[in-house]
């Protein structure tokens, strides 16, 4: 009995906790090493086959987009109509000029698929970066400051949300005669930022009421510290997921616009443009259509799969 009625002082029992007795190591799943949430998510990602497959695919696609010349010696712009007009694919000739066959002007489809990746990726990545920066900023302002800014930005997003994405960008692009990669990117970003803004606004509103944000305010932390040290790192996860998935859709949008003749100007290689060219031969020479279309599908699928894998890793509810 005496040992039970004895009340250890705060420091004593604290010492017992610290002393590296089994007591501490039994406390929750506390491993020996510091483990950040980011590192945890990364561990989860690496074990996810969805992530491994999509990650490898995206890696290959990025490599092709950056250095298409590494994978083929053929020139995608000049064809030999006389010898190769709509030449059939030769699936045995892996990595060779005639692997995917030739198009209506005798250009190597393999080379065109490779070089087409560059524009798709540049537009996709570029739009995503622009949209995440601008939409994210808008969403953060609306979510954190609320009141007038929220009303203003939310109404603005409503207006933009009402414009059909593709139709809107067609109208905008129609006004340009010289449609460079930058113009297409700008047009898509101009109409596409609202989704990220909404996601960011929601995440910021949830986060700004968290106790740790209140705790930082109670310490006298300034707005900048609260926004960038406390709110942003905790609100960014859904934005990353949405951005990854939308990257695929921006690539589709660029291809669709090119297909309709409103995308990248003449001379630029684009999967959409090639698909458009291929439609006229669809009955007898479907390969002209199928290879660029396949490349487009695989790329989009890779980004959507990546988005799903990231969502799974970041969403604590699924753990």
């Amino acid at each position: 009995m005496p040992d039970l009625t004895k009340t250890p002082s705060a420091s004593e029992e604290a010492a017992a906790i610290v002393a590296g007795t089994p007591v501490t190591s039994d406390a929750g799943p506390a491993p020996e090493k510091p483990r950040s949430l980011g590192a945890d998510a990364w561990r989860g990602l690496r074990r996810n086959p969805l992530f491994v497959v999509s990650g490898l695919l995206i890696l290959v696609i990025l490599l092709v987009a950056a250095f298409p010349g590494l994978f083929t010696g053929a020139n995608p712009d000049t064809g030999d109509q006389a010898n190769h007009f709509l030449g059939k694919p030769n699936l045995g000739h892996v990595f060779q000029e005639d692997w995917f066959g030739y198009d209506g002007t005798g250009r190597s489809l393999y080379a065109r698929v490779l070089y087409g990746a560059r524009n798709s990726i540049i537009v996709g990545l570029g739009v995503t970066v622009l949209v995440t920066l601008f939409g994210g900023l808008m969403g953060m302002l609306a979510g954190y400051f609320g009141g007038f800014w929220d009303s203003l930005i939310s109404r603005l997003t409503d207006v933009f949300f009402g414009i059909p994405f593709l139709l809107g960008s067609m109208v905008v692009l129609n006004a340009f005669t010289d449609r460079t990669v930058w113009v297409v990117m700008g047009a898509l970003a101009f109409l596409g930022w609202t989704q990220i803004a909404r996601v960011m606004r929601g995440a910021v509103i949830t986060t700004k009421h968290a106790d740790y944000v209140v705790a930082a305010k109670a310490l006298g932390a300034g707005t900048r510290r609260i926004l960038f040290r406390h709110i942003l790192p905790n609100a960014i996860a859904p934005v990353i997921v949405v951005a990854t998935i939308s990257l695929g859709t921006y690539i589709v949008a660029e291809s669709t616009l090119s297909y309709l003749g409103l995308g990248l100007g003449d001379g630029s290689i684009s999967w959409g443009g090639d698909i458009s060219d291929g439609t006229q031969f669809i009955r007898n020479f479907p390969h002209v259509l199928l290879f660029p279309a396949g490349a487009l599908s695989i790329t989009v699928l890779a980004f959507i799969m990546m988005g799903d894998a990231v969502r799974e890793a970041l969403d604590p509810k699924l753990r």
Partner: peptide, 29 residues
């Protein structure tokens, strides 16, 4: 009352329940 009696330590991790009596790391006896 005076100072409270406090059971030292923390409830066990169910992934790694102590051998023997699960309460032994916290038990004064």
């Amino acid at each position: 009352g005076q100072e409270l009696y406090a059971i030292k330590g923390l409830p066990p991790n169910l992934l790694k329940i102590p051998t023997g009596c699960a309460f032994n790391p916290r038990c004064p006896k």
